[in-house]
């Protein structure tokens, strides 16, 4: 638990190890995407799942793998295609010829970071099997349930919906993703650095952190202090999203939990033991936009932020 700070004499708030190196490490691999990297890391620290939505070749896979590597997590990648079956993800019971009994052969879900590439190309049936595993943290095969490893994070990528052969995720399943990010094209300078070989290859990424460290950080994240006035701010945002005359879907209680969790993680990355409205605002678009308007252009969350007084 973060000790209450004694603001005398210097106002440096936290005596906790800085997490800046984490951001720096991932940013070395993914150039010029500091903000997206921070958001993705917040998502990881908050224990949520991440949906990356962008064109091919913008660095989605790189980000996912870098996230896995900086905590030394087991990483698997599955390309979702239209003929992918749920069992291909969860694994199946196979007959062991030596013992004559069935043995569970775990599928790619049994990893710590699963990159679900192009999730919207798979059939809804497969999608829902994945999302069920994401929600409950376990899979059931032939009546036996198997716990997924911890930490467990799904990073799904999704191509633009205008592309051929895609099945859009229903809103209820979008809700299971803590955040939706879109990386976008890099800045000119960042791309120049990329071309001139300034980016660190993934294989060269080394980290002293272990999966246990991640679990500890996630625990600390949950203990970040959120004052009453901050909760009021979150609730005001929720209330504004649920106003009758507003277009788009209202935000659910799950969304408010997700928002607070993400804001806590963001504050932790900032090195602060408590959450401020600025943290909430920083993560708000990533957390709320895909719930407010799955197909839209990303302006509803900004409108919503403008409706609620953040100076308090």
């Amino acid at each position: 638990m973060a000790a209450p700070t004694t603001p005398q004499p210097a106002p440096q708030p936290t005596p906790q190890p800085s997490l800046d190196d984490l951001v720096a490490a991932v940013s070395q691999v993914l150039l010029g995407k500091q903000r997206s990297v921070r958001l993705a890391l917040s998502c990881l620290l908050a224990g949520g799942h991440l949906l990356l939505e962008d064109l091919p070749g913008t660095g989605k896979t790189t980000l996912a793998e870098a996230l896995a590597r900086c905590f030394g997590l087991a990483f698997r990648r599955v390309s979702f295609t239209s003929d992918l079956l749920p069992a291909d993800l969860t694994g199946i019971n196979v007959l062991d010829p030596s013992s004559g009994s069935f043995r569970f052969q775990p599928g790619p879900l049994f990893s710590q970071v699963l990159l679900a590439d192009e999730i919207n190309r798979a059939s809804p049936r497969t999608q829902s099997a994945l999302l069920e595993a994401m929600a409950t943290g376990r899979v059931s095969v032939d009546g036996t349930s198997h716990d997924l490893p911890r930490p467990f994070m799904v990073i799904a990528t999704q191509n633009g919906l205008d592309q051929v052969g895609t099945a859009p995720l229903p809103e209820s399943q979008l809700d299971r993703f803590l955040m939706r990010l879109s990386l976008g094209f890099p800045e000119r300078e960042a791309e120049r650095a990329l071309l001139s070989g300034g980016a660190l290859p993934l294989e060269a990424m080394a980290s002293a952190r272990t999966p246990a460290d991640l679990l500890a950080l996630q625990q600390r994240c949950r203990q970040q202090h959120s004052a009453d006035s901050l909760l009021d701010y979150v609730l005001d945002l929720m209330g504004a999203s649920r106003a009758v005359e507003r277009p788009g879907a209202p935000l659910s209680p799950r969304a408010s939990q997700a928002l607070l969790a993400a804001a806590r993680a963001w504050a932790l990355l900032e090195g602060r033991p408590f959450v401020t409205p600025a943290d909430v605002q920083a993560v708000f678009t990533a957390v709320a936009e895909h719930r407010l308007d799955p197909l839209g252009t990303g302006e509803r969350s900004a409108t919503l932020l403008g409706q609620v007084d953040a100076i308090r």
Partner: peptide
């Protein structure tokens, strides 16, 4: 300072 006073964990009166 404001963030700490307003959003920080409960301070004792001296703090």
């Amino acid at each position: 300072c404001h963030a700490e006073r307003r959003f920080g964990a409960g301070m004792d009166p001296a703090a």
